[in-house]
Amino acid sequence: MYQILKSEKLADRTWLMVIKAPWVARACQPGQFIILRVDEDGERIPLTICDYDRAEGTVTIVFQTIGVSTAKLEKLQAGDSVADFVGPLGKASDLIDEPVEELKKKKILFIAGGVGAAPVYPQVKWLHEHGVGADVIIGARTKDLILLEKEMEAVADHLYISTDDGSYGHPGVAGKVLEELAAQGTKYDHCVIIGPMIMMKFTCMTTKKLGIPTVVSMNPIMVDGTGMCGGCRLTVGGEVKFACVDGPEFDGHLVDFDQAMKRQQMYKTEEGRKMLELQEGATHHGGCGHCGGDH
């Protein structure tokens, strides 16, 4: 069992947890992810690492409640435990393998969409700790969904905020902020985009137009996370890749997002059915469009 040391609600349906997991904390790097299981009947949920403390043996994760398993997870509090917590999985961000001197010559931009601020944070923090500056744009639907603003401010050279509804920061999507910066003459040599697939798809179009090499972090459906099941496969530059062992980071201009988004929907009905059972118990009798009626 892996103990939860801290649980904090960051925004609507969005939680941060610090979990004791020495095997992960000892080895993890920015860009990698973990898999956890809430309880003995739980599914294996992949989540990107948000922060870690090697001395304390802890790992920080941020998650959004989207299905039955995350709904179970958000109910847990400090002092409770999750059944399993394994990692680090996937490859570390390419940035950490580059010589620091080379990185310092580059102008690097991170664009985080919604909960994507969580996996962006450790990368910016790592660069900051190694004396490498980076700019960050955090975009979200609305003000309440902007995450980790203070933390990011402490490690980013420039932090820009955007909201779709204009309730905070620049009005519009994050890509629009980049276009404005570019119009003012700011040139970036490298961009990392992490967020919902649809956001990554469209923001990649912007960076492509601006000619900025771009990396995205993919979080598809997976089971084991070690290369065994192939459920996380996606097409990158016409080749089939496994996000768990070849990724999770890929060239954003080569990823087939449309296919990845379709695959993301694979279990939507199954998941919807379970979710309704959890919310409504035996009182649910169909009509939701998900469950096919009371069967």
């Binding site: 290369g227 065994m228 099941c229 192939g230 459920g231 496969r233 089939v240 379709k262």
Partner: peptide, 21 residues
């Protein structure tokens, strides 16, 4: 290790699985 696929069209469609998965 990693499951093999055939490399034919449509293999990434929803509903196509490796036996491992």
């Amino acid at each position: 290790g990693l499951p093999m696929f055939m490399g034919i069209p449509g293999e990434s469609a929803n509903g196509v699985f490796s036996a491992n998965e």
